[in-house]
């Protein structure tokens, strides 16, 4: 049971099982029986603001710039004003300990030219900006990342859930991974 304000790690048996869990939560697959509940209510994954995913490599669109990638779902679904989005992203960039002078270059860079950790961070920022009720994270996000980056991403996620009245974070992994959150194992 995942409550608002919590972060849990879900360890599943294989990479396929991880994809299935993510697809089920996002409504890409339908459960063969039963229903998926999110904080006690039936999950409507297609409702904007319900479930968000941070893919392992950020899930960016290569012909868009970083800023366009981060704000794409918000603007597509028309759920936030650009001014407000800028404020939220600036706040999380500060939290992620990114130097203010680097912001402009990072945001204007096409996704295809980003380094792997920058792609991951853009995906993370997109998830934080969306602030869905359930933020799913592919644990690949933390794999092969520098310790300093992993540390700042972990503390940012903790700040995100502690400040949010309705959001929870679920990290899905198929590999043993060292994260500071309670792990639920499912074979």
């Amino acid at each position: 049971m995942l409550q608002a304000g919590e972060i849990r790690v879900l360890k599943v048996a294989s990479e396929e099982a991880k994809t299935t869990v993510i697809d089920l939560a996002l409504g890409e697959l339908l459960p063969s029986k039963g229903e998926i509940l999110l904080q006690g209510q039936t999950l409507d994954a297609h409702k904007p603001g319900s479930v968000g995913l941070i893919p392992a490599m950020g899930g960016l669109i290569s012909n868009l710039k970083t800023w366009e990638n981060i704000t794409l779902p918000l603007w597509y679904h028309g759920s936030r004003q650009p001014q407000s989005a800028e404020e939220v992203v600036s706040r999380w960039l500060l939290e992620l300990k990114i130097d203010k002078q680097e912001w402009e270059g990072f945001m204007a860079k096409p996704a295809a030219r980003l380094k792997p950790w920058e792609r991951k961070m853009a995906g993370l920022l997109r998830g934080l900006l969306l602030a869905p009720r359930l933020l799913l994270i592919d644990a690949g996000l933390f794999e092969e990342s520098e310790a300093a980056h992993t540390e700042s991403w972990i503390s940012t996620l903790e700040k995100f859930v502690s400040e949010s009245a309705h959001s929870a974070v679920l990290v899905v992994t198929s590999m043993p991974i060292l994260l500071p959150w309670e792990t639920i194992e499912r074979s």
Partner: peptide, 15 residues
């Protein structure tokens, strides 16, 4: 975009 799973990424953002 199809090969790089960007189309899937769009679907996963409900786009």
């Amino acid at each position: 975009m199809q090969v790089n799973a960007e189309i899937k990424s769009l679907r996963r953002m409900a786009i």
